[in-house]
């Protein structure tokens, strides 16, 4: 995007303002995605993080300028902004009481593991689980939960305890039977998880070593059966963000107009 080599100041202003407009576009994209997912179970809002670009040092600090004797200060003008990252907020969403025995919410840190068709693991906070035709505990998309939990189709009174133990009453057996154990994964840096869509997040080296624990252990959250964690998007915050994004975009476009008018004025000299 940046022009090569030395460019006149006004042209540089054009490019600098363009970086500002680009950044605001990214910010709007993020806001739009957050708002669209305001009611997606387990969705975690994102926020675009910006960083200023390296400055052009027009005069090195300490370099003497014969026009101005004395202590020189550096003359550096920045070249605008770029999107450094989108950071996922792991703030907890509101818990909604669904009374559905296969809905689980994680009251604290941690993710449920989901096995993808290729065998890789993905992670989710969306606890709207189902039992598929084979009796396997799966996500709404039919991807099995890891470790496998089989619930016989004729099982009743499914109970999921706070520590993740899954119990159910099975015909011909006395009392509730233990069918499996939900586990959670903790990451040193969960903000670095990458979205795969379908409420799934994928791990990468920046997240650190995953740590598999039983719910409630080692700082992980416990399981709340019959509840769903709603998205943590707050519509009012997003609307305010959207307004300020639009205004910032406009201001940056005004800089482009101004630089353009100044260039026009310059070319009309002759």
């Amino acid at each position: 995007m940046e022009p090569e080599g030395e460019t006149p100041a006004m042209i540089r202003s054009l490019y600098t303002a363009a970086t500002g407009m680009e950044a605001q576009q990214v910010r709007l994209d993020v806001t739009a995605n957050n708002l669209a997912n305001a009611n997606t179970a387990g969705f975690k809002k994102e926020r675009a993080e910006f960083e200023d670009l390296m400055s052009t040092v027009q005069r090195m600090p300490g370099a003497a300028d014969q026009r101005f004797p004395g202590e020189p200060s550096p003359l550096e003008v920045g070249l605008g902004v770029r999107t450094a990252a989108t950071v996922r907020s792991m703030e907890r969403g509101e818990l909604i009481n669904t009374k559905n025995p296969l809905d689980v919410a994680i009251e604290g840190a941690g993710f449920l593991q989901v096995r993808l068709p290729g065998g890789d693991l993905a992670y989710t906070r969306a606890g709207n689980l189902r039992v598929d035709s084979a009796g396997q505990l799966v996500t709404v998309h039919g991807d099995p939960i890891e470790p496998d939990i089989s619930i016989p189709t004729d099982a009743t009174n499914i109970t999921i305890r706070r520590d993740g133990t899954v119990l159910a009453t099975v015909p011909d057996r006395d009392g509730p039977q233990e069918l499996g154990q939900l586990e959670l994964t903790l990451f040193p840096n969960p903000q670095a998880l990458v979205s795969l869509g379908r409420n799934l997040l994928a791990a990468n080296p920046a997240c650190g070593e995953p740590l598999r624990v039983r719910p409630g252990e080692q700082g992980s959250g416990s399981i709340a059966q019959g509840f769903l964690e709603n998205s943590n998007v707050k519509a009012v915050e997003e609307m305010i963000d959207m307004i300020s994004t639009q205004r910032a975009y406009e201001l940056n476009s005004k800089v482009i107009q101004t630089a353009d008018q100044m260039l026009q004025r310059l070319t009309s000299l002759r």
Partner: peptide, 11 residues
Amino acid sequence: LEAVADDLANA
């Protein structure tokens, strides 16, 4: 103007 452009880009 260049400095203003940079400031506004980083608002």
